[in-house]
Design a binder for these strands. Structure first.
Lengths: 146, 146
DNA sequence: AGTCAGTGTTGGTGGCGCCAACACTAGCCC
DNA sequence: GGGCTAGTGTTGGCGCCACCAACACTGACT
């Protein structure tokens, strides 16, 4: 009956979920000590890379629900890391812009994330890290119609 | 200023989190249509592989908090997939055992998980799947003192 | 003009992970 | 033995992430 000695440990989705848990907790801790959450980083990064956008557009880019974008943007506005103003060309739409403090915070979060990355990938050689990144990237590209 | 064209997409922890999200939703859907949740699968699998155990021991094996083990075991008992009885050799301790319906359910969940796996790893060759699994396994082994 | 898609917002749900507190038991040391 | 400490089951709560439903409103299209 025990033809599968390692039923759990050999499954990629199990490995993924466990590793994501570890990684996520590291990231969470790093972000938390900088006063941020994952949603904040996603939004700041998207704003920095793709420029100002409406909340709905942000939600699409970051894959965050519109309603959650509202909350996160509220917090980012409160922190002064983001600016929300009505779009002059479109009545109901808001235009969200990253501020200078927001860029600074994004920089901090980026370096924090890099440290987490190093800690996470510690047991792997540079070549292995590259192949892992490539493989994960291929998987993600396949599963993200983007 | 745009020296990093792909700040988000190139980070393993970002890839991990995104992929874990996709994978997790696939797994969740597959488990849900079998009437189970991730906690159930973990517990059933651990019981099947390592035999009966106390709830605290189960929590340690599955990395689930004691309090959450209570809830999940309650549900599994309700579903008849698990048996809970006081440990005769230890007053307060409970002895949790997988039942025959529990093993059947575990089998269903296993095949469902296999299908999700195939879907998840679709774009990868067999060799690539192996290297990915190996790399993830090495990472997990490093970050899990177990 | 009227319909329809898109937008911002409020509110709620659920899974997962974690912690604090309590009552109780077993094993240990004095 | 008596008392202390570690371990166990249970209740209750919190926070993050992700999702959904509903509403009011605007823009665009027919």
């Amino acid at each position: 009956m025990d033809e599968t000695p390692e039923r759990l440990a050999a499954r990629p989705s199990w490995l993924l979920s466990q590793l994501a848990g570890r990684s996520g907790r590291l990231v969470f801790a790093a972000f938390a000590s900088a006063g941020a959450r994952a949603y904040h980083y996603r939004l700041l990064a998207a704003l920095h890379e793709y420029g100002p956008a409406s909340q709905a557009e942000l939600g699409r880019r970051c894959r965050i629900d519109r309603s959650d974008v509202v909350t996160a943007v509220n917090q980012l506005v409160e922190l002064g890391q983001v600016d929300r103003a009505p779009d002059p060309h479109h009545g109901r739409r808001n235009r969200v812009t990253i501020t200078e403090p927001g860029r600074a915070q994004l920089g901090r979060l980026d370096t924090a994330l890099d440290q987490v990355q190093d800690e996470l990938l510690a047991p792997l050689s540079a070549a292995d890290r590259d192949t892992l990144t490539t493989l994960l990237g291929r998987l993600l590209a396949h599963h993200q119609p983007d």
